[in-house]
Design a protein around this nucleic acid. Structure first.
Lengths: 138, 138
DNA sequence: AGTCGCATTGACATCGATTCTCAATACGCA
DNA sequence: TGCGTATTGAGAATCGATGTCAATGCGACT
């Protein structure tokens, strides 16, 4: 787990416990959306309870270190991500997710404000495609 | 319910039943994300079963006429939307959602392809802000 | 390094959303 | 209008997510 994450946890008064270290590391290393039970499986033998996985994922989402998504089957899944503004590219082949800097920017947000008379605060953008590895592998 | 929706259902071999008409109309008129039980409540007295609400929402999502989202509390919610390419503006005050034409376009997608070596197929963009009504109402 | 308070944990109970089951119904076609 | 079959409603069953609680261990303060 990154020092930055540890600092972020403790800045909010949370303790840096063993289970949290392990869960966060597993989510970060996965590099894709994971469900609580997937992480729980991956951590078998490390004596981490399923409830702690849920609690930690919830905590990360609250800290801005993870993003929650709706699974097709209704199961919730989480993606580790950095707290700065960024967007994602998701490989529809293998599920890998990468953060990107590309951003539509304020110009488009202002255009939307003119079109709708909303005051825009933030936006969320995801790209879907096929990564280099999945293209060559077939 | 719109004729276009009916055509789309039947083009895929699905029957245009009473419950489906009612559920689709309710979702469309809501103009925001709705959970199955919210729609079920709204249809009390019309003898529509909860299971049918779930089944119809699933069907709409499959037909591209509804978009699924993860609720904070884990409950799934659906938004009626048109099958053409579009994006959304969500009011963080009242929950109203409007479709917009504004789009980052292919230029940004190509920039992402250069940055990541992914082959981009599609993207999804949501704006969040406050609508005119919620600004004046406070 | 030792002690102590309290946040956190694991195991299991519980809750609640979603799906399954199945006989009854009604849509769409001839 | 009649028939075959997809669809329905009701309730059971499933399974993801959260609550409970005594035991544990993090970290602040000596």
């Amino acid at each position: 787990m990154l020092d930055d994450d540890a600092a972020r946890l403790q800045a909010r008064g949370y303790r840096l416990t063993g289970p949290r270290r392990v869960i966060i590391a597993a989510l970060r290393d996965a590099g894709r959306y994971c469900t609580a039970s997937q992480l729980y499986e991956r951590l078998r033998g490390r004596s981490v309870g399923l409830a702690s996985v849920y609690r930690t994922l919830e905590l990360l989402a609250d800290l801005g270190l993870a993003e929650r998504r709706a699974e097709a089957g209704g199961e919730g899944s989480f993606l580790y991500c950095s707290p700065r503004h960024h967007h994602h590219v998701v490989c529809t082949g293998c599920g890998t997710v990468r953060e990107i800097d590309a951003c539509p920017g304020d110009d488009l947000a202002r255009a939307v404000e003119r079109e709708t008379d909303f005051r825009i605060d933030r936006h969320k953008l995801d790209f879907y495609g096929v990564c280099a590895g999945c293209r060559t592998t077939g």
